[in-house]
């Protein structure tokens, strides 16, 4: 079996465990790294170790951070009436790139998926509920999970959890739970859109 020296086999074995990396990509990555100077390999392994040891979930929103609170939660200028619920830290980065959303985030850590054995206790849902209850101040929770069956169901579950919760300081008003719109990507072509996307875009049409 071992076509390569043991240390190289071990490197390939570790690389293949990464998502989206098969035997071929693993070989390409490994041979590329081996061609580079030793410093490059040291830098890569140091960066990996450093990131892994320093980063942990933010106390409030579960985004990745090196501090107690992530940069967004620590920022005084954020709009603390709006909470955007996403699956992963990379989704936070995506919304930040828009520069249009100024509220806070909550990272779930995935979606509900009984098939993969993921229930509410495996997500940060308890924290979400207590955050909305105690933190006060939130007027709207925007669910931005992926537009999949699992993402939608997780959204519905969150809606059930938060439904009817009062907005602090405004008697009689309850928290609004909303879901991202679905539709055509901008810069896209109507004729090339698939039926589902077109249908969703039609359902969610707006008056001009």
């Amino acid at each position: 079996m071992a076509e390569y020296p043991p240390s190289l086999e071990r490197l390939l074995h570790e690389l293949e465990k990464l998502p989206g990396v098969g035997p071929r990509s693993a070989q390409r990555l490994a041979f590329h790294m081996l061609k580079q100077p030793l410093e490059a390999a040291k830098a890569l392994s140091a960066a990996l170790l450093d990131a892994r040891t320093r980063l942990h979930p933010c106390r409030d929103c579960f985004n990745l951070t090196e501090e107690t609170l992530c940069r967004i939660c620590a920022q005084a200028t954020r709009d603390r009436a709006s909470l955007l619920v996403v699956e992963d830290p990379s989704d936070v980065a995506a919304f930040e790139r828009t520069r249009e959303y100024h509220g806070l985030y909550h990272v779930l850590g995935g979606t509900l998926s009984p098939l993969e054995g993921r229930g509410p206790q495996d997500l940060t849902l308890d924290a979400l509920v207590s955050r909305v209850q105690k933190d006060g101040g939130f007027k709207e929770v925007i669910v931005a999970t992926d537009p999949t069956v699992e993402g939608d169901s997780t959204g519905l579950y969150i809606q059930q959890l938060l439904k009817g919760m009062p907005v602090h300081g405004e008697p009689g008003r309850t928290i609004k739970v909303s879901r991202l719109a679905r539709g055509l990507p901008s810069g896209g072509d109507v004729e090339y859109a698939d039926e589902t996307t077109l249908l969703k875009a039609l359902e969610g049409r707006r008056e001009i």
Partner: peptide, 22 residues
């Protein structure tokens, strides 16, 4: 997903079921 949830027969599935009913 829903069948998988039903098979687990754990407490608390009731509230999750509704999310898959939709």
């Amino acid at each position: 997903q829903r069948n998988s949830l039903l098979r687990q027969r754990s407490p608390g599935t009731e509230s999750q079921l509704a999310a898959w009913d939709q």
